[in-house]
Each structure stands twice: as C-alpha cells, then as structure tokens.
Simulated assay, not measured.
Amino acid sequence: MIQDVLREPAKAAIFLVADVRPGSEASVRDLLADLAGLTRAVGFRAPGDQLSCVVGIGASLWSRLYRAPAPRDLHPFRGLSGARHTAPATHGDLLFHLRARRLDLCFELERQLMRRLAGHVRVLDEVQGFKYFDERDLLGFVDGTENPAGAAARAALAIGDQDPAYAGGSYVIVQKYLHDLDAWQALPVAEQERVIGRSKLSDIELTDQAVNSHVAVNTIVDPDGTERQIVRENMAFGSPGAAEFGTYFIGYAGTPEVIERMLRRMFVGEPAGNHDRILDFSTAVTGSLFFVPAADFLENPLDNSTSDGSLGIGSLKRSSR
C-alpha cells in the first residue's frame, strides 16, 4: 500500500530534511514503524483537516537502516550546471512531508516527531509552506495545473513491475527555490505570461508557446508520443521581513528519471542553452532525492529480520495492496 501521497491540495505543509546521527539507526527504524500511528493520534483531534505525513529515505541512509538491496533507482540527487543556472545537490537522509488544512496540526506532528528523534537527527532544512490565494505561487500564477488525478496519478507516482520488490513505493525530489520578486514584478504581465506559458488570470495555456517557457520546458514526451507525468505538491513559503519569497518544489514519480529530465531541460536545456526562463527569477538553493517506501514496509521493518536487527531481503517480498 502506497504511503498517503495522493490527497486533495493541502492548505499548509511542513517540509523537514534531516541527517541521521551514527548509532541512531534503530531509533529511526522504530519511529518510521510508528509513523502512521503517530499521525493518526495527532490527526484524531481534527479528522476533517486531513493530516498526513509521507517519509522518504535517502541513498546514503538506506544501507545503514536495511540490509536489503537498495531500490533500483535510488541514488543521491545529481546536481546540474547549465550555462547560466545551477541546480545544487544538498544532502539529506530523511524527508518528512507533513500536510493538512491547518498548520497547527503539521506543527504538532512535527513536534512529536522531533521529540522521538531528539539526539538522533540533525535538522538540515525546515520549511513551513502555505497555499497562496487560489492555488497560486508567489509569482502570481496557478501552480500544479497539470497534476494528474485518480488512476493516472497513481500510475505516475507508483513503482510497478520495473522493481517488483518495491512495488507500491515511489520516489520524491525536493528543491527550494528563492524568487527575485522585485525583478519579477517589474515585468509587464504579458511578459510574465510568456515566461510561464500561461495566462496569469485565466490559467489557460498560451497557444504561441515560447520554446523556453516554463510550460514548454517541463513537458516531457516519449518518442511514441506519451506525455510523462509526475505528482507535484508544491507550496509557497516566505518571510517578508527578511525579504525571502519562495516555492518549495516537491515532485513524486515512479522513477526519478522523469523529474531528472525535466530538471536537465530547465537548467541545461534541450538543446543546451535553452534553459527555463523562470530560472532568471528563481534560484534553486537545495536539491535532494529520496525513496518513499510502501506503508506496510515502514510498519513492519523487522519482518524476517536478521539476527542483528537489520531488515532482510525476505521482508521485501510483499505485494502492493
């Protein structure tokens, strides 16, 4: 059973990236096994506000937690350097993606997580995100218009027969982008629309699409004409007092290759030099890749375990429910 990735758009989120201290692996495994119950306990106070938490595991942590082979496509995030823009790779062992209709629920669940993990992890990045007006980012455009829904969303984000031992899992890539709002707002609206590839008010895709628009660059089509999709759960964040304004990108897919190609097209260009023009106003400051195990994998980490408590390969032979 896949983790609780598919939800209607949340109003609030917390993104927490952490490193696990050496010797703390057993404590982390215990916390991950209890994560679903802990989320239910906090969310029970306000069931209508749909608290959820998805956890991802980084490549460098996997072999420390589990003896089983790593998922086929799990690797550290690969940084990119184009002629003008760079996508940095930043480290992270764990990603917690907390969502709800109210920030206080996310806050309380994070507090309980950190209480359990005190002394065992070092927080590398912590971002509180929010929905901005009618599903827009801080640039003023609707974000996530092309997200698939229903069966198409499940097909886009879930691992299937290509890695059957981990069927029902997913991959997630996160990046934190900071916006130069002064430079952006100095552009006429018509020019902003050419950068994005959509009309600002109606959110309709432009018919005369620029080849370096955000929409054009992020449309991935296979040679047979199939458009590849991902599930985005982006959130706005910021601190006006510190003049910090940004978007936290988070994309789920059954293979990281889809998102990695999007990023190559954005930062390097296909052909080289045709970078996504949104990067002239938005700077990536983090980049990490994680594997999102199936829920039953997390809840039963010691099934068929080895004598030292590490997870054995046999416990991976589960079907996706």
Rank of each mutant, 00 (worst) to 15 (best):
3 Q>N: 05
4 D>R: 05
8 E>M: 05
9 P>E: 04
10 A>R: 02
11 K>H: 10
12 A>F: 03
18 A>Y: 02
18 A>I: 01
20 V>D: 00
21 R>T: 14
25 E>K: 03
27 S>Q: 12
27 S>M: 07
29 R>E: 14
30 D>G: 15
32 L>W: 01
36 A>G: 12
38 L>E: 08
51 L>N: 07
57 I>D: 09
58 G>I: 12
64 R>V: 09
66 Y>C: 14
68 A>E: 15
70 A>S: 15
71 P>E: 02
72 R>G: 02
74 L>I: 05
78 R>C: 13
79 G>P: 13
84 R>G: 10
89 A>D: 09
89 A>C: 11
94 L>R: 11
94 L>A: 08
100 A>M: 03
101 R>H: 12
103 L>K: 09
103 L>P: 06
108 E>S: 14
108 E>F: 15
115 R>T: 10
116 R>D: 12
117 L>R: 05
118 A>R: 05
123 V>H: 00
124 L>V: 00
129 G>C: 01
133 F>C: 04
134 D>F: 13
136 R>T: 13
136 R>F: 06
137 D>W: 08
138 L>C: 06
139 L>W: 02
140 G>L: 11
140 G>I: 09
143 D>W: 11
148 P>C: 09
150 G>K: 04
151 A>N: 10
152 A>I: 03
158 A>F: 04
158 A>D: 08
159 I>K: 09
162 Q>A: 15
164 P>G: 03
165 A>V: 06
175 Q>N: 06
176 K>N: 05
179 H>V: 11
180 D>H: 10
180 D>E: 09
180 D>A: 11
183 A>Y: 04
184 W>V: 02
184 W>P: 01
184 W>Y: 02
185 Q>S: 07
185 Q>M: 08
187 L>P: 06
188 P>E: 04
190 A>M: 07
191 E>T: 10
191 E>H: 07
193 E>Q: 11
194 R>G: 01
198 R>C: 00
198 R>H: 07
199 S>R: 15
200 K>L: 15
202 S>F: 07
203 D>Q: 01
205 E>Q: 12
208 D>F: 14
210 A>Q: 01
215 V>M: 06
217 V>R: 00
218 N>C: 00
221 V>M: 04
222 D>H: 05
226 T>M: 06
229 Q>H: 04
230 I>D: 01
233 E>D: 03
236 A>T: 13
240 P>Q: 10
245 F>H: 11
252 Y>W: 13
256 P>M: 05
257 E>T: 14
258 V>S: 01
264 R>K: 05
266 M>Y: 00
267 F>L: 05
269 G>M: 01
269 G>V: 00
272 A>P: 06
279 L>E: 02
280 D>F: 06
284 A>S: 12
289 L>I: 07
292 V>M: 05
297 F>M: 12
301 P>V: 12
302 L>S: 12
303 D>W: 14
308 D>P: 04
309 G>T: 11
315 S>N: 02
315 S>A: 15
318 R>T: 13
320 S>P: 03
